[in-house]
Structures are given as C-alpha cells and as structure tokens.
Design a binder for these strands. Structure first.
Lengths: 209, 209, 209, 209
DNA sequence: AATGAATGAGGATTCATTCAT
DNA sequence: AATGAATGAATCCTCATTCAT
C-alpha cells in the first residue's frame, strides 16, 4: 500500500510472513489438540488464525506438512535445554529437581504438552513425523536426563544405578501430565503441579547416595 | 447341524452373538488405536472382524457408540481389581509393588493400554465418553492406589504423606507406558518392563517408614 | 398344530393368508401415504402389520409389487360403482349429486383418497403402475360420470354440453380433496365436506336444462 | 477479461451467483417432480444443473433446505397476484374468469404446478415446509379468490353465497390440474386446457346474480 | 500474496433383499 | 410358513486441495 518507502515494506513483509506461519501453526496446534488431526478442518484452522483457507497452502504444502511444522517448532527448545544442562557446573541434585519442576510446568502450561499429546495421539499415522520426533525430541530429552544422572553418579552425589531406565522413569510421569492436561482439561481429580513437585522430591531423594 | 443334542445349539448361538459383538469391539480397538478414531473406516473394522459393514450396525448404534462400548468393556477389570485390593490382608508394601508391576504389564501388553491411549487421544471429542472414563475407570484406579497407601500409613508401614498426590504419581508413568507402547510401538529407546520394575522398587522404597 | 382335523386347517390358513396380505397392504398404504414410498422402510411396514420383515416377501415379490397390489385393491370398488350406475333407472340429477357427495366422502374418509395421493406422488417412478391405474381406475371413473351426463342430456334433463370435459371437471376437485386430506392432514383452512356438498349443488344446477 | 469497463465485471459475478442458485433450484424441482424427493440423488441434481455435487452445498445447507428454497421461490408470484387483484377496479366477473384461466394455465405449464405436486407428495414428511406453504402460498391463494367473490357479492354482481367454500371450490380443480399434469404427464385422457376454460365459464356463470 | 468458489474423492449410515434356521 | 441376522449397494454430506481472480 505505502509505495513511497520500499525498504520497510520488504522488512515488514518478512516479519509478517514469519508471523503468518507461526499464527497458523499455533491455531492448528490448538485445534489438532482439541479435536484431533483428522477431525480438524483446515477451514477452522484458517479462521482461528485469521486467514483464509487458501492462505494456509502458501505456507504449508498440505495438512500433514502443517503437522510436521508444528513438531519441528519444538526442537530449538529441546536443543537449548540440552546445551544449558551440558554447561551446568556444580551439584546436580538441585539441577535435576529444577529440571523436573520446569519440564512438569511446561508440559502442563505451554504448547509442549499439546505437542506431546498430539504425537501420542496421531504419530502412528505419520511414521515420518514419529521418527523425527523420536530422533530430535524424545531421545535428546531422555539423554538430557541420563546425562545429569550419570554426572551425579560420577560425582558420587547419586548412588550407582541404571541411569538409562531411571531417565525414562523420571520423564514418563511428566509426559503423562502433559497428555492428561491436554486430553482431559476439565478433569479436576489430580493436582498436576503438586504431583510434579512431589515427583521431583521423591525421585531425587531416592537417587541420593 | 447336530440334531441329537439340542442344548449346545442354543448355547452356541448365544455365544456367537456375544462373540460377534466382542469381535467387532476388538477389531475396532485395534484399528482406532492404530489409525485414530476418525481415520478408521468402519469398513476396515468390519473386514478386520470378519463381518460386513452393515453388521456393525446390528450391534452398535454408530461409530461413537462402538467407541463407548470399547471403553465400557474395561470397567469390570477395574472393579475386580478394586475388590481384590479391598479384601487384601497383611503387609501392603508387597501388594503395592505387585500391583505396580501388574498394571505396568497390562498397560503394555493388554488392551488396557490401547484403551488408555484411545481416551487420551480422542476423549476431548467425546465428552460423554471422557466423563464415563473419569468416573468409572480413572478415579476408581487412583482411589485403589490411594487406599493401599492409606492402609500402609495407618499400619505405620509407610511414612505419613500426601497419599492422594502419591497415588497420582504412582499411576502416571504406568499410564504413560501404555500410551507410549501404543503410540510409538516401534520405538526401541525405552525398556518399559525394566522401567516398571524400577518404578515399583523406587516408589515403594521411598514410601517405607 | 392340530393335525387331527385337516379340512378346517386349510380353510383357516386360506383365510389367514388373505388376512395377512390385506394387513400388510393396509399397513403399507398407511405408511407410504404418510412418508412416501421411498422413505418408508419395509421394516416399519412389517411392524405396523404385526409381522416380521421376511414375511412380507412371502406375500409380495418386492416393495414395488406391494405398491402395485395396493392399487389393484381399489379396482373392484370402481367396477361395482360402474355397474351400479349402469343399472340405474330414472332421473339422473339426484344420482349425479349423490355420486359426487359419495365420492367426495370416500376421497376424504377412506383409503381411496390415500391411493389417489399415492399414485399422484409416486406414479411417475412406476410407469407400469401408473398405466394400470389409468386403465383400470382413472378412465373408468371419468367414464362413469360421462355416462351419467350423457344419459341426462339424452333425457333432456341436462342441457347439451361437452360431457367429456365436464366429467373431468366434476372429478378434479374430488380427487384434489383426497390429495389435500392425505397430503396436509392438519391443514384446517378448508372444510372439505362443505366444499363437496357445494360442488354437487353448484355443478349439477349448472347442468340442468 | 474486459479490463476497460469494470462495472460489468461485478454485475456478472453477482448474476452468476444468483444464476447458480436458481439453476440448482430449477434442476432440483425438475428431478424432485419426476422422481420424488427421496428417489432423487443430489448427484443427478448437480449434473442437471451443470455443477458438481459439492457446489450444491455452497448454496443450500442440505437436501431439505434445497426443497424449502424451491417452495420459497413461489411466494413472490403469489404476492404479486394478490396485490394485482387488490388494485383491480370495475366488474369482477371477467377478473375472476381470467384469473381462473391464468392459474389453470400456470398450473399446467409453469413450475407452479410442479411445486404444488411436490408439496402434495412430500409435504407430510417436512412439516416445516408444509406449514410455510400453507401460510405463504395456500391460504393467500384462497384468500385472493375469496376477496374477489366477496367484492362481487358486495357489488350485487354475484348472488350471496358462502364465499369461503366457493373460493376453495374454485381452486381445487386448478390445483388438481397441476398435479395431474406433473404426476401423469403422458396421460392423454383429459384436455386440461379445455377443462380450465369450462371451469371458468361454468363456475362464474353459477355465481352471477 | 491472498482469497474463497468449486471440485470430487471418501466415508458413515440406511435399508431392500436374502437365507439359514 | 415365519423369522430376523446378515449383507452390500446406494446416497448424503464433508473437506482437503486447486485455481481463477
């Protein structure tokens, strides 16, 4: 529209592009999570994102590609956390506790939980996405915990144990919290925050040397 | 056919009827679990069950009713287990451990895990089914564990604690095992049996007075 | 069952047969009329007739044949009326009036109106039935009236006129009464009895020499 | 295409839209009339209208709504005729005659007859449509004739009589002509044009003071 | 880049008809 | 003769995707 200044125009467009794509991904995640992938109409995604049906196809090849893009969006966060842990120095027990609390919180209160539920619900239909999720999210996540536990054992802070199985064990209830929250949002029979806190306490205490 | 003995005839018919419904439910659970509720065609359910499309409608009102029937099928098992626990006498620590192991096993190796995954994946689209599941399966399940923990505390076998949160905590990884197994059956990065055993050990030890 | 006396058995069976068939035809006419041929399920016809679905096929080849049988059932009445009129002696004006009143009544209060509506509604889909209806019901009906009018003209009781067109004209509102009653049974904006009486009066008076 | 004149572009689009809907309604009326509502496949309607199956659903909610839209399309004509009659001045006998002839013609040669037959055949299955038809078409139609007759009586042009019953009586054979034509189009035993002319003559003469 | 009308493949559901009992 | 479980063809309707504007 404003044809006088052309440089800002491109800049804005670029940002818009990114916003547009993110907007659509956010809308799709919300609806896929609420209604399931198959039962969500792209028309509803478009409306939720404030764009038209056709616009989605300017940013994503098709419905599955949109799903894939949502999952890819989680990876940077996993990578960052992994780096952060690797750079950590000092006692690992507090780190482990805070990581449990933090992941528990994210599962319940951020899009992370929605993504986990989505992959759990639909992954079997999309082997490529499931494989990607395994390689770039699930395994790195488990490895991050395993690394911490191994560090603790090496430092005699934790008693010797099967760190791989324990890494799985620490992560499972957190994943389930995310699923629970997103699958049964009105279910009031479980205080997930309290459970996460107790999990951190209970789990780490059981590890101490 | 066998005109000599008439009793079996009626018996077989009765059994067939029952089998037909169970056959269809089993086939539907398998496919709903594999492909999701929406993506599963009733025609495929029929083929899997060895009947024709129309036959499904002789036993179930519609696709959703079939889903509901699958979930209702789990309830007797929950009830039985609850009764069994109520009648238990003696030390509760071994009971709790064996219960964790058993539930972990069932989640991974029986239809129970498939049901849990199914409700997690689709429940939000079917509030009535989710509500039924909550009332007749989830809450009774948590309560069963809470009952045991409370017994243990009363008997000074366990240290005092928030038995409600712990009941949730003990059950979450087991549920997640079932979901994991059914959502990502080819995922080899986690030995769920070992994790369940470790969970039983780790969790009960942490409770002991 | 009673195998001792065989003669009554056959007799009863014969009567039953006839009853059964009539029962089914009556039920079908009621439902075809209410819901239309296509929208009526043979299962509902069976229930209405107090028999099972399969039984219908013992008496009729298929759904269309049942329709045909219903229409065929009207013919004797038409034939009887035709004979009655042919045998009539004396002044025709009262005969014509009473015939109009009678036909008007039957259209509104007996199955005759339902049959007329049914043929009007569905005949185009079943050319064979429509043809049969034309030959054995519609034309004889018109002819009956034409015969009376011609008699009246010959006897100088009526003024000369186009008896064929008038025969059609006298019959059309009566047919429409039947259709109206059966198509819009709750429609209260028209007193069909009064209209028939007025029709008889108005029409015959207009004919008098 | 024509980039010089921009106005026609919008106009054409608007007209196309309107045409599309009318096209579909026309095609549906034709087929509903020929085969009945239930027996008509929307796929055939689409083909007849030169559009695809899905397109119908852009203009109508479902099959029943399409039926309803067809009936609604008749209302303007009824309204116009009513207004025309209200504004008439002078002798009413010729008006009444011409109205009978005109309505008779329309019943036999325009979509009006098809609509009447359709409501007669299917109305009982669609109470909402029947009710609408009663309120906005049938009663106004009768009222229009009643108004004329009452005017004639007031002007001493017609003899005193039950104008309401006579209004019904005048309309019934015309409706039946429309049904007859559309239900049994190949039936040659009745010259409906001649019958309508005779009806006009016969009926109005019988009314004259 | 953005729109939304149009398409048509796909699936849930119904129901006439068959047939073993 | 009577039943009703089983079948599968038929049809309404949905929605991912395309494309002209």
């Amino acid at each position: 529209m404003s044809e006088i200044v052309s440089l800002p125009k491109a800049a804005i467009t670029e940002k818009d592009r990114s916003d547009r794509s993110a907007q659509i991904r956010r809308a799709a995640l919300k609806l896929f999570n609420e209604k399931g992938f198959s039962s969500t109409r792209l028309e509803d995604v478009a409306e939720e994102a404030g764009v038209s049906k056709g616009t989605i196809y300017l940013y994503f090849e098709n419905k599955e590609d949109l799903f894939f893009a949502i999952i890819r969006g989680v990876v940077p966060e996993v990578r960052n956390k992994q780096r952060e842990v690797a750079e950590h120095e000092g006692s690992v027990a507090p780190l482990l506790k805070s990581l449990i609390i933090e992941l528990g919180y994210k599962m319940v209160h951020t899009e992370l939980g929605a993504c986990v539920k989505l992959v759990a619900a639909e992954g079997r239909n999309f082997p490529e996405i499931a494989e990607y999720h395994k390689t770039h999210i699930a395994l790195p996540g488990i490895t991050t915990f395993k690394t911490i536990i191994d560090k603790g054992i090496a430092a005699k802070e934790f008693r010797p144990c099967d760190s791989e199985a324990l890494a799985s064990l620490v992560i499972l209830p957190l994943l389930m919290s995310g699923i629970w929250k997103n699958a049964l949002p009105t279910f009031s029979g479980m205080d997930l925050n309290k459970v996460a806190a107790m999990h951190a306490e209970h789990f780490v205490n059981g590890l101490l040397a």
